[in-house]
Simulated scan of single mutants.
Amino acid sequence: MKREALIRELRALARKQNKDFEVFTNRGKGSHYRVRLGDRMTTVQSGDLSDLKVRTIKKQLGIL
């Protein structure tokens, strides 16, 4: 899954759950983004994300 596809999925989920969602493009190092969903925050790398990485990101944001 590409990073942009994951961000679209997270944005839709945030809308559905009525939570705040923000993407900080200037806070990560290099090409990494910081993502905040509700009161949780994590880092998302660029490019293709493995299934394990996507699951880890979702777990860190409290989705799984």
Score class of each variant (00 low, 15 high):
1 M>I: 01
1 M>F: 08
1 M>V: 07
2 K>Y: 12
2 K>D: 15
3 R>T: 09
3 R>Y: 06
4 E>K: 07
5 A>P: 07
6 L>F: 12
6 L>G: 02
6 L>P: 01
7 I>E: 03
7 I>C: 09
7 I>M: 13
7 I>H: 08
8 R>S: 14
9 E>I: 08
9 E>M: 09
10 L>N: 02
10 L>M: 12
10 L>S: 00
10 L>Y: 05
11 R>T: 06
11 R>A: 13
12 A>S: 08
13 L>G: 08
13 L>K: 08
13 L>Q: 11
14 A>H: 02
14 A>R: 00
14 A>W: 03
14 A>G: 02
15 R>Q: 14
16 K>G: 04
16 K>D: 15
16 K>Q: 11
17 Q>E: 15
18 N>P: 01
18 N>G: 08
18 N>S: 13
19 K>T: 00
19 K>M: 11
19 K>V: 03
20 D>Q: 13
21 F>T: 02
21 F>V: 09
22 E>Q: 13
22 E>R: 11
22 E>G: 09
23 V>I: 15
23 V>H: 06
23 V>K: 09
23 V>Y: 06
24 F>S: 12
24 F>D: 15
25 T>K: 13
25 T>Y: 14
25 T>M: 14
25 T>S: 13
25 T>E: 15
26 N>A: 05
26 N>P: 00
26 N>F: 06
26 N>Q: 08
27 R>N: 04
27 R>C: 03
27 R>F: 15
28 G>T: 02
29 K>P: 01
30 G>H: 05
30 G>N: 03
30 G>M: 04
31 S>W: 04
31 S>Q: 09
31 S>G: 12
31 S>H: 15
32 H>C: 06
32 H>N: 03
32 H>K: 04
33 Y>W: 14
33 Y>M: 13
35 V>D: 00
35 V>P: 00
35 V>H: 01
35 V>A: 05
36 R>C: 05
36 R>S: 02
36 R>V: 04
38 G>R: 00
38 G>Y: 03
39 D>Y: 09
39 D>S: 07
39 D>N: 02
39 D>V: 03
39 D>A: 05
40 R>C: 01
40 R>S: 06
40 R>Q: 09
40 R>H: 02
40 R>D: 12
40 R>I: 02
41 M>H: 02
41 M>S: 05
42 T>W: 08
42 T>Q: 07
42 T>V: 11
43 T>G: 07
43 T>C: 06
43 T>N: 08
43 T>H: 02
43 T>L: 08
45 Q>H: 11
45 Q>E: 14
46 S>G: 09
46 S>E: 14
47 G>E: 08
48 D>K: 04
48 D>W: 04
49 L>H: 04
50 S>E: 12
50 S>N: 07
51 D>G: 08
51 D>C: 05
52 L>C: 06
52 L>N: 10
52 L>H: 10
53 K>C: 05
53 K>H: 12
53 K>P: 07
54 V>K: 03
55 R>P: 05
56 T>D: 14
56 T>G: 08
56 T>E: 15
57 I>E: 00
57 I>C: 01
58 K>N: 10
59 K>T: 09
59 K>F: 10
60 Q>K: 14
60 Q>L: 13
61 L>H: 00
61 L>Q: 00
61 L>N: 01
62 G>P: 06
62 G>C: 09
63 I>K: 03
63 I>T: 03
64 L>T: 08
64 L>I: 11
64 L>Q: 12
